[in-house]
Each structure stands twice: as C-alpha cells, then as structure tokens.
Design a protein around this nucleic acid. Sequence first.
DNA 1: GTGAAAGCGCTAACAT
DNA 2: ATGTTAGCGCTTTCAC
Lengths: 333, 333
Amino acid sequence: MVTMRDVAVRAGVTKQTVSNVVRGRVVVSEGTRARVEAAIAELGYTPNLIARSLATGTTMTVGLIVPTVGNPFYSEVVEEVEAQLERRGYHLLMATTRGDEKRARRHLSSLSSRSVDALLVADDFDLSEDLRLLGECGLPVVLCAWEIDPPDTLPVVTIDYERAGYLAGRHLRDLGHQRLLTVADLPAHRVRVQGVRRAFAEDGLGVPDTSVLAAPGTTPEDGYEVTLAALRAGARPTAVVASTDALALGVMASVRRYGLRVPEDISVVGIDDIPQAAHAHPPLTTVALPKRRMAQEATALLLRTLTGGGPAPPGVTLLDPGVQVRASSAPVR
Amino acid sequence: MVTMRDVAVRAGVTKQTVSNVVRGRVVVSEGTRARVEAAIAELGYTPNLIARSLATGTTMTVGLIVPTVGNPFYSEVVEEVEAQLERRGYHLLMATTRGDEKRARRHLSSLSSRSVDALLVADDFDLSEDLRLLGECGLPVVLCAWEIDPPDTLPVVTIDYERAGYLAGRHLRDLGHQRLLTVADLPAHRVRVQGVRRAFAEDGLGVPDTSVLAAPGTTPEDGYEVTLAALRAGARPTAVVASTDALALGVMASVRRYGLRVPEDISVVGIDDIPQAAHAHPPLTTVALPKRRMAQEATALLLRTLTGGGPAPPGVTLLDPGVQVRASSAPVR
DNA sequence: GTGAAAGCGCTAACAT
DNA sequence: ATGTTAGCGCTTTCAC
C-alpha cells in the first residue's frame, strides 16, 4: 500500500506538504505542487480515508435507517437522500429495520460509534430509551417519516399524515359519498384513519368502527383479502379509503372480483402516490405524500448541521400532502 | 468522548486489558473482567470503530454500487444484500450510478480508498479502465446483474438474460404465436431480444427488425407510448414480449387503450417478475429473474473472501431464469 | 494474565 | 512556503 510517506520521499518533501497538496487547503508553491502531483501519479497514491477520519474526527458518511427499501415510499426516500448526500460529497451508510425494533436499536448504537457523522432515521419506533445514548454521543440526528408521536427533543421532518387522511375523506365527501369503508394497516396508520373520520365528522357523519378494517400488512393482497371478505359479509360502501396505495390496488382488485366497478359502483382512494398508482386500472386517486421533499429537507437539515450551521433545533416540520385526483373516484350515484 | 484509556484508568488496568475484554479474544481473569466491564458500563464507553479500522485495516463495511433503488429489480437486490451482510455483522455503504458512468467511476475510486473491505458492483458499465485500479488496491470485487460482456478478470454472479429472452419467446411459440412484437430498452437489453429471436429461429421463424421497438427507457409510459404508436401505425402482432415487466405493464395498457384485449387479442409477456406483475390486470406472464438468489450468491462470495476463504476465482456464474405463467398470455386464436 | 511499546496513515498546530 | 512535533484511539507484538 502506497502511503503519504512514500509520496513525500519520492517528491523530496515531507508528509505535511503532500497533505497540503492533496487537500488543497493551504498554498503550495507551483514547483513543489508539480513534483508532489507527479509522485502521486507515478505511485498511484490514494489517501487512506480511515486514517483521515481518525485524524479529523469526521467520516463524510451519513447513516440512514429505514424499515425497508422494497417499498416504493422508502425507496424514493433513500434515492433522494443518496442524491442529496452525493452532491455534498457524503457517503451513505444504510441499514434496514424490517419493522424490528431490536434491529433498529442495534443499528442505532452501532452507527453512533463514530462511523457516521450524522444519522437520519426514517422509521417511527419507540426511541425513548435510545435518546440518552444519542444525546450523549453528540451525533446529529434527524427523524423523518415519523407518523406516531415523535420525541420532542429531536428535529423531525415529516408529513401531516392526519391531514392526508382528512384530504382523502374530504375528497370523497365532496363527491357526495356517505357510506365509507376504510382499510388500514393498524395501528401504524391510525392517524390517517383519524383524518378520514374528521372529514366525515365535519359534515356530521360518523364512520363506525365496523367500517374500519385492519389489514394485516400493507401489500395489495392484504387489501384484497380484507375488502373481499367485507363485501362478502354484506358491506355496501360507495367508497373505500385505503391507508396506502398498495392496499388500494388490492381493494380495487377485490371490488372488481366481487363483480362491482371502480369507480361507478365504488370509489377507491389511496394515500401515498407511488409510481404505479398512475398506471393502475383505473388510475388511482390518491393523496400524494411529499416524500422526496421530506427526504430533501431532512437531509438538508442534517448537512447544515455538519457544515457548521450549528445544531438543528428540535421540533417538528410538517409537510402538506395533496390530493391527486384520477379515475378511481367519482361522484356517488 | 470516553476512550479506552478512560476505562483503563477507572478499572486500574491498561488499555490492552480493556481491549482484551472488549474483544473477548484473549483470556482475562474473572476479577479484572468484572472491573473493566463495570467501568465500561459506568462510563458508557463504546469503542471507536474508526480507530479500530485504522489499526486492523478492516472496516466491516461492504460497498454496493447500483444504478438506482427506485426500481423493483434493484431494490430487491439491495434488500437481499443488506440482509446477508447484516447477518455477518457487516455494514452497507451504498452508492447509485443513475446510469452515469462518470458517477460510477467516482464511486469506485472513492470506495476503494480503504473505506470498504469489499465491493459489490450491480451495474454493467465499461470497467476496463478501472480494472487496473481495482486490481492494484487489492479490494475484493464481485460483479452482479451484469448483462453485457463482463470482464473476465473478476468473479461475476449474474443471470442468463439471453435465456430469459429465449424462454419468453419459447413460451409464446408454444402457444402458437408467430407475429411477434418486441419492446425493449435498447441497447441495454440487446441480449434479451437475441434470446427471443433464437426461440423463434428454432422454429424457422424470423423476427424482423421492424418488429423490435426500442423504448426510450424502462417505465410503463415508455412501453405504452411505443406500443400504441406501433399499433396505430398498423402493427398487428398476436403477442408482445417486453424486455422488462414495467414496460410490459405499459404495453398492456396501450393494447387496451387501442381497443384490444389481453390476452384474447394480444398476449403480453414481460421479463423480471416484479411484485406488481402478479397484481396487474390481467396478471402478467413473465420470465422470473432470480435476483434475490443472485444477490445472495454474490454476497456470499464476497463474504467468503473476507472471512479468509481466499480470493474468489474470476469467472461467470450464470443463474437460470424461469417462466412464470399468468393470465396475460394465451394460445393464439 | 497483564503491561509496555510501537505503529496504523493521516492532520493540526506551531516553528522555521 | 515547508518542516517539525504531536497526537487521533485502537490493536499487535513481545516482555514480564
């Protein structure tokens, strides 16, 4: 392995001068710079990032914790975070929790051992035990995609999920729907359902608990099974809100399977706006969650801290979702 | 920051003893071990991974280069790689190329500067210039998802994409189809098209160049636009092979849009078997690419090298795709 | 079983 | 503008 020493010897200077040339932060005379650069090229020297990290105390790496990447919501978040980090020359160390709090904690503590300069957590699990640890090691942390009550000691950039539910409900109310079915991954998406209820409550309408179906997960199959069972059991909604687009896709399939049409017989609305929502049949009306913007702002916050902007203030930044009207919803008949 | 020194002082031993306790690789007497562990707990000590890396020359981190994660194929690959790495206690440093060779090269050289122990490259770009660099720095590298001619100096775990195309063609031939349209992201998926042609050629049938449509990209829209234009221009295929499922989804939409039915009028076959293929309407017949297995084997190869198994031998491991018959393909009428 | 010494490759502060 | 000195926090080798 060729080190800075080798280059220095070859160029007839000291390590320090080589360092100065490499980093370009200090003025070096034209002649020496040329000699050093020649030596670097001839020897094929590349600086050892680990050694630099140990000396500077900075790794130029940001840790990202997500539940999974096999889900369009999070894969877009990851993509956006990576893009933002790359622009500033940072690397991305990624870890997935797969819904397992133990794994999440393991990653938290392992990443906080100086191997990353900052941490972005895009998964809402109970952090209360870990907050002390995080606070102590002084690692900048930003939370995002936080749906349940986030800790108020950390900066959080997330989406107004309650409002997403509200907008879904509002849209259907505007179309005149009264008999609603809600399919949700509970308890994770509890606040989305709350939002839906608020929209209906505004018009004096209730959504009985029996009309809120808990899906076992968040795949199209889950939406399909749960909805088909409800329809077969005699449910007669004019509209369905699903707490995610993936569920909504399954809901649409089950409606069709049951022999009804979307949206003529039953309107279906999702939440998220994943790429495939636009290509569904019919194209899915949904409440778009601004995930890329969320990822962008969260990363910006983190980066600002790292580039001397001082610690990010704790507190929640709530981004607004917006209805994306497509063909799966129509006025009630 | 609490260091090993602090713990040593507190426990009345030397750094070395603390190190021995932490790593558990050397026998330490019961008494001292207890004292050291107590000191660690009281002080809240966590070892500095960077310092350890500098001393050992190993980072317990593997670099992964992929084109993107916003594509089900690669997001599954990433997921699988991450899962395998985590099982062995390795971290994942991920970088995306977004189809840009320059960016790919930048990542290659940046990651090879001792910040990762090994590199997994899941994107087929021209590596010829970089091979020397990679060889010199002695970083174990494994290639996967390599569709165009891989360098023969490195180990490669990939899928037989030509055979995938062949199987798609074979399936349609078995159903009696003769007038075929092929929609492909060219030149990237050239070998898939070759495979399709081979299947038809086996039966003495040719696929004219005019029946091979180059999609500008790989999204459903791309498939939609290209196919609709062809249909409107008078193309009358009884079957379409798309080089990816995403394209196939668009193809199906365009067929429907044109007023024809899938599969009654036109059969549609994709390649990949992404999760949504099964939920398409109709469910998409496709050639399943064993991406998880690919990711698993590539990671296993890398890890074996890292855990003292000696360097992985160069050469290509080709995994077999398999037809997944669903409702989008039917016998020709 | 434990300690002392040396060094991983680099950067930062100061001296020249 | 360049050289000197002193670490960063850990592991490794070799004494004891």
